[in-house]
């Protein structure tokens, strides 16, 4: 596969380390009263759909950026990729 790195263009997927569901960006509030239950979901409940999925990939043999890649897990079609820090900042600002 080729991962379309937002800064570097298409790169061999072998340069990357795969993590999985991009939901991991959304770490629960540790101060919240139901923090333990929220963390339990965060750690153990990951989606793994057959279809379009947002995933985290780390450019280990590259610029060391974490990416959020939108990929159809059935066809392997990649619909987009962003720097994870941009996604995290955007969501943090909301």
């Amino acid at each position: 596969m080729l991962i379309p790195h937002p800064l570097l263009g298409p790169r061999n997927a072998q340069e990357f380390t795969y993590l999985g569901d991009a939901q991991l960006l959304r770490r629960p509030d540790p101060q919240a009263p139901d923090a333990e239950a929220a963390f339990c979901d965060y750690v153990f409940q990951r989606s793994n759909p057959a279809g379009v999925h947002q995933e985290l990939w780390f450019h280990e043999q590259g610029d060391r950026s974490w990416l959020v890649v939108t990929r159809n897990t059935v066809t392997h079609e990649i619909l987009g990729a962003e720097l994870a820090c941009d996604v995290a900042k955007r969501e943090g600002a909301q």
């Binding site: 991991l24 985290l56 780390f58 950026s65 995290a88 900042k89 943090g92």
Partner: peptide, 18 residues
């Protein structure tokens, strides 16, 4: 060594980018 660095980058870029 590799995993700790990767996880620290994850924390830095994905959890606390500010």
């Amino acid at each position: 060594a590799g995993a700790v660095y990767r996880n620290m980058e994850f924390a830095h870029q994905c959890l606390w980018p500010d």
